[in-house]
Design a protein around this nucleic acid. Structure first.
Lengths: 245, 245
DNA sequence: CAGGGGCTATAACAAATGTTATGACAGCGG
DNA sequence: CCGCTGTCATAACATTTGTTATAGCCCCTG
């Protein structure tokens, strides 16, 4: 059993499609530069032209846009195993920022090395493209979330998604997972005010659907949470075992 | 000067990156089956496993999800030149529907032919991937739109985007373009009620920013429309001439 | 040419969500 | 150990947006 910083990336990619031992080895062979980043700090700035992409090893990151009127909208939350700026391989200017939500550990891989890997290992290339497409599928679902669900369901849905993403890379047992982010950040992700996020979290608690204390969240009633969230996991395109609930 | 049904696709791809004559020829050589589809009809159903992808030749299409409570959220609007289900090449199950907004003409291309094209013409492959990534960038902006902009700005933003997309494929002159869709459809796209869409459209008119009669929309004050929309076209990743305003 | 259906426009009212303010509490740094 | 700062919780109130209802209009079809 190897142990590499990129184990979590391999686990993530395998949650959406299988990889052979050779393909895994090729991923482990990627040149890395690993950086620890404090909380609330940009990893990639809006407007940058990156020459490398990153893998989340530990912690939570988000992608966001800041509007001229000061509001910030988070449009994705990233957990270990994610590659949040893979698109910069083909779109050279960043149209949004990438920042840490919590203190994180991030691995950077030069674009050149990724391109080489993708040309030598077509199935790894497919897996990475698939990852980008799932990323886009999650964006679509977020549009539905902020556009069509009321506040209570919106939060419930976000929790359902985070739970499955974390469980797919082995970061959740017994419906419990780390959720070390603030209600203000949830507000930026759901397009709600912090006050209303608080109201809705209180409501989820009093309905017995979740507990959430000191950064640890537990889903107490998964079926009911899914129901109120109108959650259908198809869009995550997880393979059989990662999707089983 | 050739004239092919796929001219509009070539124009679209060239609006985000150049193609050589040979590459264009390879695209024109794709096997097509062209279908006219009446308005308000599914082209691909949620849950389908398509074996072909389509190109919009004429008309307006949208991708959408229908929630259990009956609300429909549109998460993209597609115009001629777009390939709205290109992702089905790599994600085999549709997690959303694709439907016409207006009577449309659509060309279907078998996945096998697309895969062959992409393996033989790496730069066309890059262009198609780039198209998918721009698609994802538009999703991100839509999350911002429904999550962070008030109704008035939200509509303004949607009009800015449609205008630039249409102009990039030659379907707009003098800030005028066909907008043959209903306010109810705009409501589904912006996460607003039809009544509030109407209020906001009235407001845009009375502010002198647009006129919109019998399916023809004209932007009367582009700078001001962009300003109230907080519109920044970077996310469309258009090349120089397509982006000039 | 008449009738009907869908779309637009508008009003009155209801509900969801935002804003501002404040207190309690926990964690951290001096 | 104290005080600061950030976060959570909650209240009172403001605003935006949704809902229901209705009327007019345009366009299509018979």
């Amino acid at each position: 059993m190897v142990s590499s910083p990129l184990d979590v990336l391999v686990r993530k990619l395998e949650s959406i499609g299988p990889l052979s031992k050779d393909e895994q080895k090729a991923i482990y062979a990627l040149p890395l530069s690993i950086r620890s980043v404090p909380e609330h700090q940009d990893v990639v700035h809006d407007g940058d032209r990156p020459t490398q992409s990153c893998v989340v090893l530990e912690g939570f990151l988000c992608r966001y846009k800041q509007l001229p009127d000061g509001t910030r909208q988070i449009h994705s939350i990233h957990v270990p195993g994610d590659m949040p700026d893979l698109q910069s391989l083909h779109l050279n200017v960043m149209d949004h920022g990438l920042a840490t939500l919590t203190a994180s550990k991030v691995a950077f891989i030069p674009h050149a090395a990724l391109r080489k890997l993708m040309s030598e290992q077509p199935r790894v290339s497919d897996a990475l493209w698939r990852d980008i497409l799932v990323d886009a599928a999650i964006f679509r679902e977020w549009i539905v979330n902020v556009g069509a669900r009321e506040a209570y369901a919106r939060l419930a849905h976000l929790l359902c998604e985070l739970f499955l993403k974390l469980r797919a890379v082995g970061l959740s047992q017994d419906f419990t997972f780390q959720l070390p982010i603030t209600q203000a950040e949830l507000a930026d992700a759901t397009g709600l005010s912090t006050v209303h996020v608080n109201r809705s979290v209180m409501h989820l608690r009093s309905a017995g659907l979740i507990t959430w204390e000191r950064g640890e969240c537990k889903i107490e009633n998964w079926d009911e949470l899914k129901r109120v969230a109108m959650f259908d996991p198809t869009y995550l395109h997880l393979n059989g075992e990662a999707k089983a609930a």
